[in-house]
Every structure is written in C-alpha cells, then in structure tokens.
C-alpha cells in the first residue's frame, strides 16, 4: 500500500505549480491516500502483452492545408492578458 505523506503532496504541488496552504496540503494527503488506494486495484490485472489505448478513433494523420486562418487578432489575444505593455504580455523579471 502506497504511503502519502505531507511532503509527497508538497512535492506534487511544486510539480503542478500550485501554492497550497498547509491545511490544504494536509487535507489532500488524506484524500490522495484513499483515492490512490482505490485506483491501486488495477495492479491485480494481468496486462502482459496488452497494448495501451491512448485514443479511440483509430484515426491518424488528419491533414489540412497549411493556410493561415485569421480567426482572432493579435490585439484581441493580447487584451486577454492580465498585464501587458508595448504589445507584449508583461511578467515580473525572470533573470
């Protein structure tokens, strides 16, 4: 049985870029434990030699013409950003 500690949850939160509070971390450790216990039942299935299914349509390589479709303008997209300047999305200093 998989053990889920608060540290494990904190690590997953870092990977998912979610700044959880300590209370949330503790609560999620409990929830995740019971959910993971439930999904672990798949380990009893013998899947030797079985191909995984990633999609169900059976379609592959759906091509279209490489035409530019101007459905949305640059201005409309930029206007969606919470902060912008000089036609660019503004973020805090990265380096």
């Amino acid at each position: 049985m998989m053990k889920i500690t608060n540290d494990d949850v904190a690590h997953l939160a870092t990977l998912s870029q979610i700044a959880l509070t300590d209370e949330e971390t503790a609560a999620l450790a409990i929830d995740l434990k019971s959910i993971i216990k439930y999904i672990e039942q798949l380990s009893e299935l013998d899947t030797t030699g079985v191909e995984p299914t990633y999609q169900v349509t059976g379609l592959s390589n759906i091509w279209r013409e490489d035409d530019i479709e101007k459905q949305v303008s640059r201005e409309e997209l930029l206007a969606l950003a919470p902060d912008q300047k000089n036609n660019q999305v503004k973020v805090p200093k990265v380096l």
Binding site: L12, A13, S16, I18, A19, L20, E24, L28, D31, L32
Partner: peptide, 17 residues
C-alpha cells in the same frame, strides 16, 4: 492557480501529476 482552481480541480491535478 491556487486561488483560481476549486479544491476538486486541485485534487485531480495532484492525482494526475
């Protein structure tokens, strides 16, 4: 992300991760 998602979103994102 923490403010913008509901707790069920966070729970599932964590399981997915």
């Amino acid at each position: 992300r923490n403010e913008g998602f509901m707790s069920e979103n966070k729970r599932r994102i964590m399981i997915g991760t």
